[in-house]
Structures are given as C-alpha cells and as structure tokens.
C-alpha cells in the first residue's frame, strides 16, 4: 500500500485537531498509528476512511486520489473496509445477515453466494455456531470478530481499524488481535489506530506517532519502540511502560 498525505489540516470549531500532516510511505502492508488520546489519530483515520472531510490537504492511497465529495466518497467507501471501536454491527439482524446484507445490496452478489461466503468466513473464525444470533447475544470479542468478517467478506482493498480492541478485556483483546494478525499474514493491507503497543510493535511494519495534531515521529515499528528519538515519543512510551 502506498500512502501519500500532503498538508492535511482539520479543525473543529477553531481547535486544530490535525495540523499540517505530511507523510509519504511506499509498499507498506501494515501501519500502526499511535499517540496520546485526543492527539488526532482517530480523526486522521476517519479522514482516510472517507467519513470526515479535511479542511485542506491532499490524500492519495494506492490509486485513490481522494476527492471529498459525496459521489466520490461513496465509491471509495465501497472499496475499503472500516472497523470501529464499538463494533457497529446492526442490532436488528443476525450475525450472518450483518455480513450478507452489504454483500447483496451494495455489491450485488446473489443471495446464495453471499450466504456461502459469509458462512465460510464465520466458520474460519470459529463463529459458525453464533451465525444466527443477534449482536446483543454475542460477547464483545465475538461482535468485533463478526465485524471483521463482514469487512473481509467485502474484499476490501485495505482495512482501517479504529481502536478495535479498546472496549475489550485482555482475553478478548488477544482473540481479536490474533485475528487481525491472521489478516496481516495474508498480506491484507491494514492501517490500525491502537493502544496496544505490543501489537503495533510486533505485528505492524511501520508506526506513526501522532501528538497534538502533528506527526512527531515515524519509522519502522521496531526502531520506533526500541530507540525513539523525539522527547514526546520517549515520554509517551516511558509513561506506558511504567507499569510493565
């Protein structure tokens, strides 16, 4: 995946959340975005997902030169997958229907095929026995895994994860991270906003550190975590590992 961001700026009511973000990455398969809460990392991801419009700046991901008009964004969103912190399965339909509905309606795949596809994904992630349950009958980890299966079923070009495990307890977190790691092994490109530093370090090739609306530091994950250069990153990591 190639990512090229130029002069990206976004503010909410005079509060600059992203302040002139610039980055140029080539052939990245997995990218972690880390940083303190409120630093702008989720906003960046939401802009990359086409859910939020920047005030100015250009974004190019692979061949997508993202134009922020509804028509362009509709096509763009169809081709990428976004996973949210709160899973966001539709509550009124079963787990499997959550997967087949966008397949049938958005991607015009016939019912039989959509069902088959959904079933095989659920099976692969050991979720088949939950396929007819509604989301409120599933655990947080199961919900998130169904949501990931849904994104995978759509055959997206790449996947975006917005803190996919921050609402889960440690055990379920592992469950979901394992699943995400599986995707990575299949060379599914992904961008991940996360608080799981271990995962960012070991499972992601490249890491960006964002604080106060700016990219403070970026580099190969191993390097970022073993020899941080900026004092902000040093302080951030120092605080995190205080109790380790």
């Amino acid at each position: 995946m190639n990512i090229n961001i130029d002069n990206l700026t976004k503010s909410y009511e005079n509060n600059k959340v992203l302040n002139d973000i610039n980055i140029n990455l080539k052939n990245i398969t997995s990218l972690a975005i880390i940083g303190p809460s409120g630093g702008g990392k989720s906003t960046l991801l939401r802009i990359l997902a086409g859910l939020e419009k920047p005030d100015k700046g250009n974004i190019k991901i692979n061949d997508w030169n993202i134009l922020f008009n509804e028509k362009y964004l509709k096509t763009y969103r169809k081709n990428i997958g976004m996973l949210f912190q709160a899973y966001n399965l539709f509550p009124h339909i079963s787990a499997i229907r959550n997967i087949t509905l966008p397949l049938e309606e958005v991607h015009k795949i016939n019912k039989k095929e959509a069902f088959k596809k959904a079933q095989s994904l659920l099976e692969r992630f050991q979720l088949s026995k939950h396929s007819n349950k509604r989301p409120d009958k599933l655990s947080g980890g199961q919900k998130q895994r169904v949501a990931i299966a849904r994104a995978l079923a759509l055959n997206s070009e790449f996947l975006l994860f917005d803190e996919p495990t921050s609402a889960l307890d440690p055990e379920l977190t592992m469950e979901v991270l394992d699943m995400i790691n599986n995707l990575r092994k299949e060379n599914k490109d992904l961008i991940l906003v996360t608080h799981e530093m271990g995962f960012a370090r070991k499972a992601c090739e490249y890491t960006i550190f964002i604080s106060e609306g700016k990219i403070i530091e970026h580099g190969e994950s191993e390097r970022i975590f073993t020899s941080p250069k900026s004092k902000e990153l040093k302080r951030f990591l120092g605080k995190l590992f205080q109790w380790h």
Binding site: L51, M82, F84, N88, P91, L101, E105, L154
Partner: peptide, 28 residues
C-alpha cells in the same frame, strides 16, 4: 449515529440505509 456511519462506510446509499437499517428498527 454510529449505525448510520457504519452504513456509510459499508457503502449503503440513502435508500438502502433507510430500507434495511433505519425503517425496520424505527417500525419496532
């Protein structure tokens, strides 16, 4: 709002969003 956002991110158009996500839940 998160459900509407999810429908957007999955690529539903406005009609599909109302037909499959909003109206069934609203009727109930």
């Amino acid at each position: 709002k998160s459900q509407l956002e999810t429908s957007d991110s999955l690529g539903f158009n406005t009609y599909q969003k109302y037909r499959y996500i909003i109206i069934p839940q609203v009727i109930k």
